[in-house]
Write a protein that binds this DNA or RNA. Structure first.
Lengths: 237, 237
DNA sequence: AATAACTTGCACAGTGATGTGCAAGTTATT
DNA sequence: AATAACTTGCACATCACTGTGCAAGTTATT
């Protein structure tokens, strides 16, 4: 008569829950006002089933925000470059991989209702950005004609625009996002191109983390052949 | 028995109509989903009265969009500078004065429902920007590492961010918006500062238009005392 | 094979918004 | 002063969406 331990959740249910989160992320990235029905249907479930996994809309949003926050925080703490320009570039490059989450955060952040939640979720990332910008202003490697707070907002907006408003399937999309952010931070476009050429690892693979990449990575030029290509693209002469 | 000519609209009614448009512009700039009730109340009218002036929500939005379009088009055709950098700077400076309309256009443009309307309204402005950017790329005064179409989108986003996401009451707000746009167009921050110092008229009063200002305006330095102030503001050393 | 877990569809109540009709009141215009 | 124009408040129908209860069915797990 031992009150039998409650059976653990069924596998299909676990999958469905994850499917909802994924579908919701995509749906909300596309339209912040996406209805519960839309989300459930795009996850292949009925509206009613969704309420079996999440108490209400807020609970669902909260988990989505948390998921984004976790990824963002990892990225923020992964960037340890001393050079502010390089740090900012790498940060953007890594964020670019999380385009969907960036878009969701941006979308939800527009809503006054969840401003607090997103704010809390983005706090560590914003703090990291502020630190980088401050460092760059102190040593003169970033623009000093704008106070740090304002610059942070502008850089954030530039990154958001470059990540979410540019076709992510373009081969140069990632490089473009990075160059955009650096531009906003005060560099001329030629300087951004030069910086990326000098640090090819920034646009490289997942960087250090999963696979052990000791120190300076020498041969990571697989995904992106050469920056020069995309950098010169569109030049008239 | 001549079917008497219908009396012309009452003066207070005309004022109220204008008041609604103005209130709606402000309300929607603040929240794209602002309800009819909110708008009417903030115009000092009842919800019911609003429907006496506009058939439905769309009719109201259409007029707001048109009002913005008219202002934008005037600005676009007012900018005639040959130098692409100067033209872009002046365009931004003039747009900055229409912050509320810029914000409304940006807000509504996010909505799929009115995407067509805003697109049509912004078309001439976008065309002007594209022309300026193309010119700048041809003579090498603007960045050539991005194709014109993408660059246009990025510049537009940068301008939007600088105009709507920065406290417009700050004395350097206008200058900041211009420098931001130029940064996105490829200039280094020092180049943007230099350009504004070389062309103080860009941040000056309403420029040519109402009052006759023959040729090169010598004494227009009223509204903005000196660019050097704001440009150097925030510099650490 | 038995059981608990999960999903579905439907009904239902509640909310907030839109757009309209109408009677009664107020106000600009002639 | 008369009149048409305008505003208001209320009632009403409609719509889209949220969140819950429940019975009946399907499916993973033991």
């Amino acid at each position: 008569m031992t009150t039998s331990a409650p059976r653990r959740p069924r596998q299909d249910a676990v999958d469905n829950r994850a499917g909802i989160l994924s579908a919701a992320t995509a749906a909300i990235a596309h339209d912040p006002q996406a209805s519960i029905n839309t989300i459930a249907r795009s996850a292949g479930l009925s509206r009613r089933a969704l309420y079996g996994h999440f108490a209400d809309r807020n609970a669902l949003l909260a988990e989505i925000i948390d998921a984004g926050a976790e990824r963002f925080n990892r990225i923020a703490s992964d960037v340890t470059d001393t050079d502010a320009q390089v740090a900012l570039a790498r940060l953007t490059s890594l964020l670019w991989q999380q385009a969907a989450h960036v878009q969701v955060a941006a979308s939800i952040a527009l809503d006054d209702a969840h401003l607090e939640a997103t704010g809390k979720a983005l706090a560590p990332l914003r703090h990291a950005v502020a630190a980088i910008l401050q460092r760059g202003q102190n040593d003169g490697t970033l623009r000093t004609d704008v106070d740090v707070t304002t610059l942070a907002r502008l850089v954030e907006e530039a990154a958001r625009a470059a990540i979410t408003r540019v076709d992510a399937t373009l081969p140069e999309a990632r490089s473009l996002a990075v160059r955009t952010t650096l531009s906003m931070a005060g560099l001329s476009w030629r300087e951004t191109v030069a910086l990326l050429e000098a640090h090819p690892d920034i646009l490289g693979a997942p960087a250090a983390g999963d696979v052990a990449t000791n120190g300076t990575a020498p041969a990571t030029a697989d995904a992106t052949p050469a920056t020069a290509d995309t950098a010169t693209a569109g030049a008239k002469r």
